[in-house]
């Protein structure tokens, strides 16, 4: 998927957020040298292509009390994994949900779901909900809690750093 220079200018200008003004796309347009209508048309097109997932607020989980998180991992029958993964991803306490390759014998798990809660007990309870949803299709599971953040940098536009 390719972005032309005007798209890339819009991405660079908006990836840290839109200005909180009455007409934010007009403000972006003024900064990148396009018209408001062009910025809106290009961003709608990026939405259609999946480059933009949505335009929304990103809340700080920690400030809203969701201080516990666990990476739950599941060994799910391959034949059922796509259907069950979609149902797990749709749960409102799962923030990321992916199928990934196993690395046996150390790592038998193929479904990863990041679970958030106000406490470790709540994460465990939600993990139980996922276990119930997966049922017999799941052979083994584990939860990896983060002990320490060793490095954290924002993901930026490739070539933009």
């Amino acid at each position: 998927m390719s972005l032309d220079p005007a798209d890339r200018a819009i991405v660079a200008e908006t990836q840290a957020g839109l200005p909180l003004v009455a007409e934010p796309y007009a403000a972006v347009a003024a900064r990148v040298g396009l018209t408001e209508a062009e910025v809106i048309a290009r961003m709608r097109e990026m939405c259609r292509r999946g480059v933009i997932r949505r335009v929304a607020a990103a809340p700080n989980h920690y400030r809203l009390g969701l201080t516990a998180n666990g990476m739950t991992v599941w060994d799910v029958d391959d034949a059922a994994a796509a259907d069950l993964g979609a149902r797990v991803g749709a749960l409102d306490f799962v923030s990321h949900c992916y199928l990934r390759p196993r690395a046996r014998p150390l790592w038998p798990y193929n479904l990863f779901a990041m679970v958030h809660g106000v406490s470790p007990d709540e994460v465990e309870a939600k993990r139980g909900e996922i276990a119930g949803l997966l049922g017999d299709a799941c052979r083994a599971s584990d939860t990896l809690y983060s002990k320490r953040i060793l490095k954290k940098t924002g993901l930026r536009l490739a070539g933009g750093r």
């Binding site: 998927m1 390719s2 972005l3 991405v11 908006t14 990836q15 840290a16 957020g17 839109l18 909180l20 961003m43 990026m46 292509r49 999946g50 480059v51 933009i52 997932r53 949505r54 335009v55 929304a56 607020a57 990103a58 809340p59 700080n60 400030r63 809203l64 993901l155 536009l157 490739a158």
Partner: peptide, 16 residues
């Protein structure tokens, strides 16, 4: 409480 308001870009779709 809100870290930002704006487009959520799919980093892989942008070419990374």
């Amino acid at each position: 409480i809100v870290t930002r308001f704006g487009p959520f870009y799919d980093a892989a779709a942008m070419g990374g």
